[in-house]
Amino acid sequence: MSYEASLKHKRDAENVFNSAKKSGEALGHAKGLAEGKAKGLAEGKAKGLAEGLAEGERRKAVETAKAFKEMGLPTADIAKGTGLSVEEIENSKVLYGKSSFFYIKKVTGNNCSN
Rank of each mutant, 00 (worst) to 15 (best):
G44D: 15
G72H: 03
A26L: 11
L27C: 15
K69T: 06
G109T: 14
A67Y: 12
E51C: 12
S23Y: 07
G72Y: 03
L49I: 11
S99Y: 01
A26I: 09
T82L: 00
P74K: 05
L53Q: 04
K47E: 11
K10D: 15
S19A: 09
E63A: 11
T64E: 03
A67F: 12
I89D: 00
F17G: 01
K39I: 02
L27P: 08
N18G: 03
F17M: 08
K21V: 14
A46K: 05
A79T: 00
P74I: 07
S6P: 04
N111G: 12
V16E: 11
T75G: 02
F101C: 02
G56M: 08
N18W: 12
A54Y: 09
V86I: 15
L41T: 03
S113H: 14
L73N: 05
Y96T: 09
P74A: 13
N110T: 14
G36D: 07
D77Y: 10
E63N: 12
V94Y: 05
K47A: 12
A46D: 03
G24D: 04
L41H: 05
G28R: 05
V62P: 00
I89A: 00
K45D: 03
L49S: 10
A46W: 01
A50H: 13
V16M: 04
L73T: 07
L27Y: 14
N18Y: 10
K105N: 06
K45G: 02
A61T: 08
I89T: 00
E87T: 07
A50E: 09
G83S: 05
A30Y: 13
E57R: 03
G72A: 02
I78N: 00
G40A: 15
A42Y: 08
S19W: 08
G24Q: 11
I104W: 01
S6G: 14
H9K: 10
R59F: 14
Y96C: 02
K105S: 07
A61M: 12
E25K: 13
L73D: 12
G52K: 12
M1H: 06
A54C: 04
V86H: 13
R11L: 15
K60L: 14
G28H: 06
A5M: 02
G24M: 09
K47I: 11
G48S: 15
F68S: 04
S100W: 03
S23W: 09
I89L: 01
C112P: 04
A79H: 00
V94I: 13
M71F: 11
S19R: 09
E43C: 01
K66V: 01
K98L: 04
E57W: 07
K106M: 15
K10R: 15
L41P: 00
G52W: 11
S85G: 13
G24V: 06
G81W: 12
K47C: 05
V16N: 08
S2W: 03
G56W: 08
D77F: 10
G32F: 03
